[in-house]
């Protein structure tokens, strides 16, 4: 048993948790952008509250906490594995393709995490009526949250390339 619980095992464990929470996060991000947002105009007015009062708040809960769990497990994983600083500095001058590639993924993921907690969630609270706001403020909040969500969808494509490519498709 003692041989099983090594630092290699803990690193694996955090990588496993990091992948699961990452799927929880990006899965919901893609649900919002590929399913919910394009469907909203087609839903009859009297049925919209099913989305805005029940489904969207629950999806946003798992979305934002998935983002938090992903960055926390990712930073622990990088620190424990010894490549945190190399990745933050994009491996410049190191000629280390792993650190450079994962570093791009980490920076993109960090921008996306910022968008979730600073731009999307505070504005979505106004849009969904979780906090009160004037109608023009709600309109502006919907625009900011929507654009930040689209930026994250765009960034998720290179981010996932970098995360998977660092180990499985290095130069």
């Amino acid at each position: 048993m003692q041989e099983l619980v090594t630092s290699t095992w803990w690193i694996f464990c955090f990588r496993w948790l990091h992948i699961m929470s990452g799927i929880m996060w990006i899965g919901h991000l893609w649900y919002f952008n590929f399913v919910q947002t394009p469907s909203m105009p087609k839903i009859p007015q009297e049925q919209k509250p099913a989305i805005t009062k029940f489904i969207a708040p629950a999806a946003l809960f798992w979305f934002r906490w998935g983002a938090m769990a992903t960055i926390v497990t990712g930073l622990i994983l990088a620190g424990w594995s010894g490549f945190l600083w190399g990745a933050i500095t994009l491996g410049i001058g190191e000629h280390n393709s792993h650190d450079t590639t994962i570093g791009f993924g980490m920076w993109l993921g960090t921008i996306m995490w910022f968008n979730v907690w600073v731009l999307i969630w505070p504005n979505q609270k106004k849009v969904l009526g979780i906090v009160s706001a004037q109608p023009d403020e709600v309109k502006r909040a919907a625009r900011v949250a929507g654009l930040a969500s689209r930026v994250n969808t765009m960034l998720s494509i290179p981010m996932l390339y970098a995360m998977a490519g660092a180990t499985h498709f290095s130069f």
């Binding site: 952008n33 590929f34 394009p38 994009l90 491996g91 410049i92 000629h95 280390n96 393709s97 450079t100 590639t101 791009f104 654009l147 689209r150 930026v151 969808t153 765009m154 960034l155 998720s156 494509i157 290179p158 390339y161 970098a162 130069f171």
Partner: peptide, 30 residues
């Protein structure tokens, strides 16, 4: 001019374009 991020298709295309740019940058650094 319309914001390309208002279109889901254009958002995805931009994501792939950014991926190519990123790969070129990685290649230049490594």
């Amino acid at each position: 001019m319309k914001n390309p991020l208002d279109s889901l298709q254009q958002t995805v295309v931009l994501g792939f374009v950014l991926t190519v740019v990123m790969v070129l940058l990685i290649h230049a650094i490594v």
